[in-house]
Design a protein around this nucleic acid. Sequence first.
DNA 1: CCAAGAATGTAATGATATAACGTTTATTGT
DNA 2: ACAATAAACGTTATATCATTACATTCTTGG
Lengths: 141, 141
Amino acid sequence: MADHAHHDGPPLTRNQQAVLAALKGADKPLTAYDVLGLPAIRKAGMKAPLTIYRALDKLIDQGLVHRIESLNAFVHCGHGPHDHATGFLICTDCGRTLEVHLESCETHLAGRAREQGFAVDNVRVEMTGRCPECAARAAAS
Amino acid sequence: MADHAHHDGPPLTRNQQAVLAALKGADKPLTAYDVLGLPAIRKAGMKAPLTIYRALDKLIDQGLVHRIESLNAFVHCGHGPHDHATGFLICTDCGRTLEVHLESCETHLAGRAREQGFAVDNVRVEMTGRCPECAARAAAS
DNA sequence: CCAAGAATGTAATGATATAACGTTTATTGT
DNA sequence: ACAATAAACGTTATATCATTACATTCTTGG
Ligand SMILES: [Zn+2]
Ligand SMILES: [Zn+2]
Ligand SMILES: [Zn+2]
Ligand SMILES: [Zn+2]
């Protein structure tokens, strides 16, 4: 395949591909400086924070990456273009995250905002707790 | 009144009172360095970032202040102890925020997490958009 | 008073993000 | 193909947000 199967936006540049691959390969969100420190990234010739941030900005614009505000970190998204707001479940033990969709809940949230006369254009939800694996491990001890 | 009417936690120290007063007096969230820069704060003898962060930590513990993750900023909360998760409406024009309560929606959100086997202990919601004033001003132009 | 714990002061540093400016590379119209 | 334009990139410096380490002072219960 010439380019990626789904995903229609403009083709990714070399830097953008490298950063996206880094996030895909990680099992948890990475900070920009985490990405910068990866051998594959240095090998691609990227050596300044700004280089990483620029690639991340484009990837976020295209919906391929999400930013987790409470971690100052970035995570790959394979769920295609989002019609609805999404939420993140952040494990406080292992640091891994899970993305959840908020179809119906989004309506409810935005409704609360409208009650106040507020015109919402973006909804972010982040929930911390324990992932199934860490909850099980904690129960066993 | 000797101490604050509602609010039962330990009495606030001088530093904590100064920081809380600063946030109460602001019409939008302030960063720690915003607080540090206020004349009233300097007058109170506080001159290092750590001093501000320490006070903020205690105020957050006591539920008197919330942190807005996507702004790295802090805002006073006058709604007393929270039984439920709260959300913040953040105006992208003027920077002011509004706090909303999420009684019923919280159940829904946490439900999504439980479907994934995730045990939630904290829910954060931040919504950006335009506040009533800024929406009206934009419409007028 | 005295010991223990909490809060504070002070300095240095770590971690995250952007500004400014010039160069290179890709796209578009002719 | 060529020039004009726009997008991406490189490089350096700097801005912004947050914590570590350690000494000192304040508060509180015995
Ligand atoms: Zn997604
Ligand atoms: Zn976990
Ligand atoms: Zn509140
Ligand atoms: Zn506004």
